[in-house]
Design a protein around this nucleic acid. Structure first.
Length: 624
DNA sequence: GTAGGGTTAG
C-alpha cells in the first residue's frame, strides 16, 4: 500500500482500534485537563509495543574512513599535517588540501580554516572552487558573511567561477545573520541575471530564511515558484514550512500543507515532520490530535526519536503533569531512546514551575548520576525556580557553581538572577549584577531590559528607570511598546501623572502601536488621580483606534467610577461588560457591594451585577 | 574520491 493511501485509510477506517478509543474519550472528556490525561493513556497504548527500528544496517556500510583526513580528531594534528603537505615535493594535490581544510572545518575550527587558506595563498599553493566554498562556509559560520563575499570577489580575480554551492553557502550565511530581506534580494538577482539555477537545497535555504523571520506567506510563495520553475520540493522543503507554521500556532494550515505533501505530492513524511506537528498540537493543548499523530507515525513505521519524546515530556511538564512525564521517560528508556540533557531540563523546569524545588533538585542530581552533564539551560531552569521562590541565597550559590563548572552565564542566567534580586527588593545588588553582566560582554536583551525597568519601578525607583530609559535613547530596545507600558505604570503608581502622560505621548509620536495594556495602564493612571473625564475619553479613543478593551480595562475604569460613586457610568459599563461576556473580579465586586451597603450607590445596580458575576460563584444572597 | 539545506529548552 502506498503511503498516501495508507494514511487516507487510516483516517477513515472505522475499524481502527485507536479511532474508536479516541472518539469515545473525546466525547466523554471535553476538558483540556482530561484531554491531557487521555493523551497520556493513548500515548501508552500507542507506544507500548516496541518495534525495532531498521537503523542497524546503516552502521556497517562505512566502518573505515573514506580518507585519512577523517582520522584527524584534533587541530594540532591537522596543522602539523598541513605543514608537511605544504613542504612535500612534489606538492600535495589541491584535493588533499581541500580534504584537510574540510576536516578542520568539521571540527568547527573555522578561523583556523581561514588562516590555512591564507597560508596556501601566501605559499602559492593552487586553490579551486572547492577550496573557496569551504572557506566561504567558514566565514559564514563565524557570522562574517561579508568576508565570504569578499572571498567570492577574490575568486573572480583568480578566475575561480562560483557555482550553486558557493551561492547557497553565502545565502545561508546571510540567513544565519538574520538578513533574510538582503538574502531574498540576492536570491532574486541570482535568478534574474542567470548567475545560477537554484536547486532544491538553495530554495530550502531561502525558505528557511523567510520562515525564520516569520514571513510564512513568502515562503509558501517560493514553494509555488519552485513548482513553476520545475524544481521539485523535497521533504525538507515541506518540513521547514510545516514547522514554521506550527511555531506561529497556525497548526491547521500546517496540517493542510502536510496533507498536500503526502496525498498530492506523494512525499513521505519523516520523524521531523511528525515532531513539528506533534509539538504544534501540544502547544495548543490539542492532545487528542497529538496522540493521533503519534499513532499515525507508528503505523507508518516511523519510529519516534528522542526529540519526539522530549516534546511530549516538555508538554506534560508545562501542564504540571511532571509525574506523567516521568512515566514517558521510563517508556522512552524501554524503547531504547536514552533521555538526554533536554529531557531532564524539561523535568526540572516542570518541578520549578510547581514550586517543588526539592524534586527539581532531585531531578538535577539524578541526571548527573546518569552521567549527563547539565548545560547552561539546565542551570537556568533551576536558577529560575529558586529566584521565583525568593530563595536568593541558593540562587546565588548556583550562580557561582555555574562559573566554577566552567560554564558561561548567558543573558538568561543574568536576567533570571536580576529578576530574583528585584523581587526581594535588592536593587543595589541587582544594579551591580547588571553592570557585571555588561563587563562580561553579555549583551542585555529585551527581557533583561524590561526586568530591570520593571524591577526599578516596583521598588520605588522610577527615576532610576526613567534615566535608564533616556540613556538608551533611540535604541532598538526602546522601540517596544511593552517598555512604555512598564514606565507608564511605574510613573503612575509613583503619582507622577505628567511623566506617565509624556511617555504615552512619546510612544504615539514615535509611531509605535499602543496595545490594550498601554491604554489600560494609562486609563488606570487617570483613575488614580480621579481624572475620570480623561479616563473615559481614552477609553472611547482606544475603541476608535481598533483596540478593544479587555476584562482588565473594564476592571480598572469601573473601579475609578466606583470610587467617584458615578451610578450612571457604572451602569453603562456593567451593561457593556454583560454584552461582551466579561465577568467582574472579586475585588471590584466587593468594592461595589461596600458602596451599595453604605448607600453611596443605589441598589438598583444589584440586578446588573448579577449578570456579570462569573458562573459558579454564588452571588452571595443578593437576589433582588 | 573534496564543498551547501530542515526539528526541542527562558
Amino acid at each position: 500500500m502506498t503511503i498516501p493511501e495508507s494514511i487516507a485509510s487510516f483516517t477513515f477506517s472505522p475499524l481502527s482500534k485507536f479511532k474508536a478509543n479516541s472518539s469515545i474519550i473525546s466525547l466523554r472528556n471535553p476538558l483540556s485537563f482530561f484531554g491531557l490525561r487521555t493523551g497520556i493513556c493513548l500515548l501508552q497504548t500507542v507506544l507500548a509495543p516496541f518495534h525495532s527500528t531498521s537503523s542497524s544496517n546503516c552502521q556497517s556500510q562505512r566502518n573505515h574512513p573514506r580518507s585519512m583526513f577523517e582520522k584527524i580528531t584534533n587541530l594540532d594534528d591537522a596543522l602539523i599535517l598541513f605543514d608537511e603537505m605544504a613542504q612535500r615535493q612534489p606538492p600535495s594535490s589541491v584535493l588533499k588540501f581541500n580534504q584537510l581544510l574540510q576536516a578542520v572545518t568539521k571540527m568547527k575550527h573555522f578561523a583556523s580554516s581561514v588562516e590555512l587558506f591564507k597560508q596556501m595563498n601566501a605559499l602559492c599553493i593552487p586553490v579551486d572552487v572547492y577550496t573557496m566554498n569551504i572557506v566561504i562556509n567558514c566565514c559564514c559560520k563565524m557570522y562574517r558573511t561579508n568576508e565570504g563575499f569578499a572571498l567570492l570577489g577574490n575568486g573572480f580575480k583568480h578566475a575561480i567561477k562560483p557555482d550553486v554551492f558557493t551561492f547557497n553557502t553565502l545565502l545561508n550565511g546571510l540567513i544565519l545573520e538574520d538578513k533574510a530581506i538582503i538574502a531574498e534580494r540576492f536570491f532574486k538577482k541570482l535568478i534574474k541575471e542567470e548567475l545560477c539555477d537554484p536547486d532544491v537545497i538553495m530554495y530550502n535555504t531561502m525558505i528557511k530564511g523567510l520562515c525564520k523571520c516569520g514571513i510564512n506567506d513568502k515562503a509558501i510563495g517560493l514553494l509555488k515558484l519552485m513548482d513553476e520553475r520545475g524544481c521539485k520540493p523535497d521533504v525538507v522543503t515541506y518540513n521547514t514550512i510545516i514547522d514554521s507554521l506550527c511555531k506561529d500556532e497556525m497548526v491547521d494550515d500546517s496540517l493542510k500543507l502536510f496533507k498536500h505533501m503526502v496525498l498530492r505530492k506523494y512525499i513521505r513524511p519523516t520523524v521531523v515532520t511528525y515532531n513539528s506537528l506533534i509539538r504544534g498540537l501540544c502547544n495548543l493543548c490539542r492532545w487528542d490530535e497529538a496522540s493521533k499523530m503519534l499513532k499515525e507515525m507508528e503505523d507508518e513505521r516511523i519510529s519516534p526519536d528522542v526529540w519526539t519524546f522530549n516534546i511530549l515530556v516538555d508538554a506534560l511538564c508545562k501542564e504540571g503533569h511532571v509525574a506523567d512525564a516521568e512515566g514517558v521517560i521510563k517508556l522512552m528508556i524501554q524503547r531504547g531512546n536514552d533521555p538526554d540533557v533536554v529531557t531532564y531540563t524539561s523535568v526540572i523546569d516542570g518541578y520549578c514551575l510547581q514550586g517543588e524545588m526539592r524534586k527539581a533538585r532531585e531531578a538535577f542530581d539524578s541526571m548527573e548520576l546518569r552521567g549527563l552533564v547539565p548545560d547552561i539551560v539546565t542551570y537556568n531552569s533551576l536558577l529560575n525556580g529558586y529566584c521565583k521562590k525568593s530563595r536568593i541565597e541558593e540562587a546565588m550559590h548556583l550562580f557561582q557553581e555555574i562559573v566554577k563548572k566552567g560554564l558561561k552565564p548567558n543573558v538568561t542566567t543574568y536576567s533570571t538572577m536580576l529578576q530574583g534580586l528585584f523581587l526581594i527588593g535588592r536593587c543595589k545588588d541587582a544594579y551591580k549584577l547588571f553592570n557585571k553582566m555588561r563587563s562580561q560582554n553579555v549583551i542585555p536583551d529585551r527581557f533583561t531590559y524590561e526586568i530591570v525597568l520593571e524591577g526599578l519601578c516596583n521598588n520605588n525607583e522610577v527615576d532610576e528607570a526613567l534615566s535608564l530609559f533616556h540613556l538608551m535613547g533611540e535604541n532598538k530596545l526602546n522601540s517596544c511598546t511593552n517598555v512604555y507600558n512598564i514606565l507608564i505604570d511605574g510613573a503612575s503608581k509613583s503619582r507622577k501623572l505628567d511623566i506617565a502622560r509624556n511617555i504615552f505621548k512619546n510612544l504615539i509620536d514615535k509611531g509605535l502601536e499602543p496595545n490594550v495594556r498601554t491604554f489600560t495602564v494609562m486609563i488606570g493612571a487617570f483613575c488614580l488621580e480621579g481624572l475620570m473625564g480623561e479616563a473615559k475619553e481614552l477609553f472611547t479613543e482606544m475603541e476608535k483606534r481598533g483596540c478593544l478593551p479587555n476584562d482588565v480595562t473594564y476592571r480598572v475604569i469601573l473601579q475609578g467610577f466606583i470610587k467617584k460613586e458615578e451610578q450612571g457610568m457604572i451602569e453603562t459599563l456593567l451593561k457593556e461588560m454583560e454584552e461582551k461576556g466579561f465577568s467582574i473580579d472579586a475585588s471590584t465586586l466587593s468594592m461595589l457591594l461596600d458602596q451599595i451597603k453604605a448607600k453611596s450607590l443605589d441598589d438598583s445596580l444589584v440586578k446588573l451585577i448579577g449578570k456579570v458575576v462569573p458562573k459558579g460563584v454564588d452571588s452571595l444572597g443578593f437576589k433582588s
